[in-house]
Computed example of a mutant assay.
Amino acid sequence: MDYSNERVAIFVDGANMFYAQRVLGWHLDFARVIEYFTRGREIYNAFYYTGVQVPPDNSQRDFLTALRHLGFTIREKSIKETLDQSSSSVIRRANLDIEIVIDMFSTVNRYDVAVLMSGDGDFERAVELIRSRGKEIVGVGTRGMISSELENACDRYVKLEDIRSEVEKVR
């Protein structure tokens, strides 16, 4: 089958992939990720969503600069700190789920296949609606960190463990 005129959009939930890599014990090479998911297809765009520390952390800045050089559109939000009253611990987070969904919908006419790199079940309804518009949705995550709702909503779900040789950062 000839996929050469199909366009792919990649949406990376940065926090989800950060924890996935920690669980896996190896790192993703995002140039190889793009290569793997576009094989024989055209890339429309790749988006990376992440929380950033204020002031910015140098290693994260360097990482985001490298992603920009690969052609990623970076969406970032300042990390907010809140105190968990029950444990007295500080919770740091920057939720970018809405930004991911907005980009998936606002660009829906520019791609044929959406690759959603997240295991977050909050995306289930958005995935169902995008599929109803005739788009193929490929979910990507790691075992033990994939919501069954999201996995079932996608056309197919790729486990990072199964494609390690294709997407791992080789040092």
Rank of each mutant, 00 (worst) to 15 (best):
M117R: 08
L83G: 04
T65F: 13
G144M: 03
R61Q: 11
E161I: 15
F37K: 07
G25Q: 07
R68F: 05
G134M: 05
F72A: 06
E161K: 05
E6H: 02
N152L: 08
E124Q: 01
F18P: 07
N95P: 00
E151C: 13
D97L: 03
D162L: 12
Y44W: 10
I146C: 15
N45Y: 07
S118H: 01
L129I: 06
D112W: 11
S86M: 05
Y36N: 06
V52S: 03
N16K: 11
Q85A: 12
S87T: 15
V167F: 11
T38Y: 02
R61H: 05
V138I: 15
S106N: 14
S87K: 08
R41H: 05
H69M: 09
R133G: 14
L96P: 05
V158I: 15
V108F: 08
I137H: 10
V127Y: 03
R7L: 15
S147N: 07
G144C: 09
F11K: 11
R75P: 07
D112G: 14
R22W: 06
V127F: 09
A31N: 08
Y3K: 12
N16I: 11
Y157K: 02
S118G: 03
N16L: 12
I91G: 00
R7G: 14
Y19P: 04
L24T: 05
Y36S: 13
F37S: 13
L24D: 08
Y3S: 11
L24E: 08
E149Q: 15
D122H: 07
D103C: 09
S132V: 11
A153C: 10
M117D: 04
I91N: 10
A66G: 14
D29C: 11
R92T: 04
D62V: 04
R22I: 05
L67E: 01
I74F: 03
E81I: 06
D122C: 03
R32T: 08
E81K: 09
N58A: 10
R133K: 13
W26M: 11
F63R: 06
L28P: 04
R32G: 06
F30L: 14
D103L: 12
D62N: 12
S106V: 12
I163F: 04
L70F: 03
H27R: 14
G25D: 02
S4K: 14
S59P: 04
A66Y: 01
E35C: 12
Y111F: 11
V101M: 10
I146T: 15
M17R: 06
Y44A: 06
M117A: 10
W26P: 00
R68M: 05
H27E: 13
T73Y: 01
A20L: 13
S118F: 00
N58E: 12
G119F: 02
E42V: 08
N45F: 08
T38P: 00
Y3I: 00
Y19K: 13
Q85H: 00
T38S: 01
K169Y: 09
T73D: 14
K77V: 01
E6Y: 11
F47Q: 02
L96V: 01
F63Y: 11
S86Y: 10
D162G: 02
Q53R: 13
S147T: 10
A9M: 14
V8I: 08
H69P: 06
F47M: 01
E149H: 01
R41E: 04
E42Q: 15
R32A: 15
I91L: 12
R143L: 14
D162K: 14
T38N: 00
S148R: 15
V115A: 10
A126D: 07
E149P: 06
